Amino acid sequence: MYEEFAQVYDELMNEIDYSKWSDYIQRIFFNSKKEIKSVLEFGCGTGNITCHLAQKGFELTAVDLSEAMLTVADEKVDRMGLKNVQFYLGDMSNFQINQTYDAVISCCDSVNYLPDMEALQSFFYSSYECLESQGMLLFDINTVTKYKKTIMDNTYVYDLEDIYCVWENEPHFSENAMHFNLTIFEKNADQTYNRYEENQIQYFYNIEDIHRCLTSIGFKNIKYYDFGTFLQGSNEGERVQVVAEKR
């Protein structure tokens, strides 16, 4: 999964400020009743936030469904000389491990890739089981408003030094889904190009759905922030940061 995409992911996403994102997560950790030392990260991708948090001294266990993404992440950790990171290949909706953590996180709208309410609830259950008492669950979601008013059916072209990518958004609002269709050309050393396609789907969830699932599992003190702030978030914003506590 994501075999070729993993190699170009960081270049296509280079506008994301992962340092600022990890600082925001750390500020949320400061509000925890429990001191956060150990962190389980679902959907770690190529390990950008993983590395920033590890540099801050947290013990990271990072999980992703893509072996190719984990290979890139592991190489990044080795280059940086980080010793406080472990990687696992696994599915965030049914992951099990014989260990508990002070916090479980999932960043960069990874939760939007869960295909239905059953998978969403399974992810919350897996997270709950992996948390210490009073441990914290953090994740962010793209809202329906963002899909309908910002992402829409736009097409984007990335013309980078060694990569040319056409990114087409294809909304399926009746299915509460957004399809992303990427055609990528990657330049070789001999100036020829490899062409491949990447297709992904994200699904829409609103705060009411999320709240119902979290409370049914036993999470408490659930907060919804306008992403990047500590102001009240809503379905009318573009990204919501969710914070919940295990009983």
Results as ranks from 00 to 15, higher is better:
Cys213Phe: 01
Gly228Phe: 01
Tyr156Leu: 12
Gly81Gln: 11
Gly43Ala: 14
His179Ala: 13
Thr61Trp: 03
Val72Leu: 07
His179Asp: 15
Val242Gln: 04
Met117Ile: 07
Val85Ser: 07
Phe42Lys: 10
Lys246Glu: 01
Glu35Ala: 12
Gly233Phe: 10
Glu4Val: 01
Asp91Phe: 08
Ser110Arg: 05
Leu89Glu: 04
Ile97Leu: 09
Pro171Gly: 05
Asp64Ser: 07
Ala73Lys: 04
Asn98Ala: 12
Phe204Arg: 03
Leu82Asp: 08
Asp190Glu: 11
Gln96Lys: 13
Ile25His: 00
Lys187Phe: 03
Thr215Lys: 15
Leu231Met: 15
Glu35Pro: 04
Tyr18Asn: 02
Asp74His: 10
Val144Arg: 15
Val39Thr: 09
Phe30Trp: 13
His52Val: 07
Cys44Lys: 01
Gln241Cys: 14
Lys56Ala: 13
Tyr18Asp: 01
Asp109Trp: 11
Gln121Ser: 14
Leu40Gln: 09
Asp17Ala: 06
Glu41Trp: 02
Met117Leu: 15
Cys107Lys: 09
Glu198Ser: 10
Val77Tyr: 09
Ser32Asn: 01
Asp91Glu: 08
Ile207His: 03
Asn48Ala: 10
Asp64Cys: 09
Glu3Thr: 12
Lys83Leu: 14
Ser32Cys: 07
Asn206Trp: 02
Thr100Tyr: 06
Glu170Ala: 05
Lys76Cys: 13
Phe58Trp: 02
Lys34Leu: 03
Glu67Pro: 02
Ser22Met: 10
Ile25Asp: 01
Ile201Phe: 04
Gly233Cys: 08
Ser93Asn: 15
Met69Lys: 01
Asn31Ile: 00
Met69Leu: 10
His179Tyr: 15
Asp10Thr: 12
Arg239Ile: 13
Leu138Gln: 02
Met136Pro: 02
Asp153Phe: 03
Gln96Tyr: 09
